[in-house]
């Protein structure tokens, strides 16, 4: 009799299992380790770079800090592993790190074929052009007949050809093997314009002799949405990463910053109350504590703060928000609501 009861209880436990969906194995592993393992670029201006003290800084880096803060309440509980472009996906699959936050473009083939899951877009990048100010060019459409410098073997050359053909413009491409050569050629006046991803153009501009003499044109000719990626085998972990990113974006939209987050806890606005865990149990439903978003915002800042500090006006790069402005301000950053 007792055995039958136990068997029934066991059966009931199995049957009800999917409704509760046990905690994420990756989260359990992260909690057991006591730190988050984060794969970042070996060095990319504004996105991930070790400073003179050996502290990692950058947009991609700060996202991992926010994630660590959401999980542990301590943004320092994260270990960064530099990953080259070649090994980044293999290393994620072999469990070298828990999240890949490495200026990785979200494409269909990567999402579908590589067993990854992209958690969202932290930075909308795209191929652009930089020209010397003295040419007085305001739009890429005025580049007819221009000599354009770029590096070989990437999709930039292809995008360039497509753009000029569809706009019926003539151009000459001057391609080099490596990035510094491209910059040196442009700086010495061998070409009228230089093209690569816009964030890269801002970084390259800083290495020119007179950065102020060059402008980056507004047109973007390719889509490069960069975002954090996780292993597809653990969807709940993907949720944690995704909603940490959304929480940072929602916080900016709702005016919650690292400075005012404590006062905001008393806000009557139901959206803010749910985001900050004053109402509901959204954090617990992911296996975190309910103040997960408070921890992340307080220690790392909201999306806007992270952006401005690393790549925006608070950094030497001075990248405009552009596509990365909130949807309310004409950009693309839009996070689903917490409810």
């Amino acid at each position: 009799m007792r055995i039958r009861v136990a068997a029934l209880a066991f059966l009931a436990a199995i049957l009800t299992q999917p409704a509760f969906a046990g905690p994420s194995p990756t989260l359990q592993k992260v909690l057991k380790n006591g730190y988050l393992r984060c794969g970042v670029s070996e060095g990319l201006q504004g996105f991930s770079t070790p400073d003179a003290k050996g502290r990692w800084t950058g947009l991609d880096v700060d996202f991992c800090r926010a994630l660590a803060a959401a999980i542990f309440g301590d943004a320092q509980k994260v270990r960064f592993t530099p990953a080259s472009a070649k090994v980044r996906f293999t290393a994620l699959q072999s469990g070298e790190y828990d999240v890949l936050s490495r200026n990785t473009t979200w494409t269909m083939s990567r999402d579908v074929q590589l067993g990854l899951e992209f958690a969202g877009t932290i930075y909308y990048d795209g191929q652009g052009f930089m020209v010397p100010k003295k040419l007085n060019i305001k739009s890429a459409k005025q580049l007819n007949g221009a000599n354009i410098c770029t590096n070989t073997g990437t999709t930039t050359e292809l995008n360039l050809a497509d753009y000029f053909r569809s706009n019926k413009l003539k151009y000459t491409v001057i391609a080099f093997e490596r990035e510094p050569e491209v910059v040196a050629a442009y700086d010495s006046g061998r070409c009228d314009a230089i093209t690569t991803d816009q964030s890269g153009l801002y970084a390259e501009r800083l290495t020119l002799k007179n950065p102020a003499d060059h402008v980056i044109l507004p047109e973007i000719i390719s889509k490069e949405p960069l975002g954090p990626a996780v292993n597809q085998s653990d969807p709940q972990w993907g949720d944690i990463v995704r909603w940490t990113l959304f929480a940072l974006i929602n916080a900016e939209e709702l005016g919650v910053t690292s400075k005012n987050v404590d006062q905001m806890l008393k806000s009557p606005n139901p959206e803010i109350r749910r985001l900050l865990g004053v109402e509901g149990s959204f954090g617990q439903s992911m296996g975190l504590s309910n103040d997960w978003a408070v921890r992340a915002i307080k220690q790392v800042g909201n999306y806007g703060e992270i952006f401005e500090r690393n790549v925006g006006q608070g950094s030497p790069l001075k990248i405009q928000r552009g596509l990365n402005a909130l949807w309310k301000h004409g950009g693309l950053q839009y996070a689903p609501p917490v409810r």
Binding site: G43, L44, Q45, T49, D51, P82, A203, L206, T207, P316
Partner: peptide
């Protein structure tokens, strides 16, 4: 590697 990664520090970017 550590020198290369340092060259990507935008606080030190120069020709």
């Amino acid at each position: 590697g550590i020198i290369q990664s340092g060259t990507s520090d935008s606080h030190w970017a120069s020709p």
